[in-house]
């Protein structure tokens, strides 16, 4: 699977545009006028939302215009003379798979950590990446995971006294 740059440009502009619209809507709750004592709380957010919307629309138009101009003409209009070479995609299939393989475990770790606590979450994550992504032996990966947990525990809980989320399992074993 490959995602072209144009698709991504359009998707991003649509997304930022909807964020802008959302901000406009959200700011109406606070009053968007200019009162006797200067701007009301929603005045600036409303303006910000509108400008995001305008900027996104302009980007959208620019994207379509550029691509409409570049493709059929084949490089005459682009100026720098590089138009003959097809545009590099945003991301190709291999890279996308690599990226997803990197991001998904992180998301999984975050979801798990909310439930089991950060220490167990990070341990599982390190074990997974060492074993599956980096291809170390099970024992090595396990040792690495335990080491990471131990180092973090000592640094945060003991040295700097910054409590991280423990979760029910550590709580059960009386580790705090």
């Amino acid at each position: 699977m490959e995602i072209s740059r144009k698709t991504m440009e359009v998707a991003t502009a649509v997304l930022t545009g909807s964020v802008g619209a959302l901000i406009c809507y959200g700011s109406t709750e606070n009053g968007i006028g200019w009162g006797p004592g200067g701007p009301e709380p929603g005045y600036f957010p409303f303006g910000i939302g509108c400008l995001i919307l305008i900027g996104s629309l302009a980007t959208l138009v620019q994207t379509f215009w550029k691509h409409a101009g570049a493709h059929p003409a084949g490089g005459h209009s682009a100026g720098a003379g590089a138009g003959a070479v097809p545009e590099e995609p945003f991301i190709d299939g291999t890279r996308l798979r690599l990226l997803v393989a990197f991001v998904l475990p992180i998301v999984a770790m975050t979801a798990l950590s909310a439930w089991l606590g950060l220490y167990i979450g990070m341990g599982l994550y390190i074990f997974y990446t060492m074993r599956v992504s980096a291809g170390f032996r099970t024992l090595t990966s396990l040792a690495a995971a335990l080491l990471v947990i131990a180092v973090n525990f000592v640094v945060f809980e003991k040295l700097f006294m910054v409590p991280l989320l423990k979760g029910p399992i550590l709580e059960y074993f009386g580790i705090y």
Partner: peptide, 30 residues
């Protein structure tokens, strides 16, 4: 692109706006 810069600045401002407003004491964009 000046439009992309505009979008970025404004998104940054919007992120800074989220939360309690000092002047009015109201929550904004929450």
């Amino acid at each position: 692109s000046p439009f992309k810069t505009l979008v970025c600045i404004m998104l940054g401002l919007a992120v800074g706006t989220v939360g309690m407003d000092t002047i009015s004491g109201e929550g904004r964009l929450t």
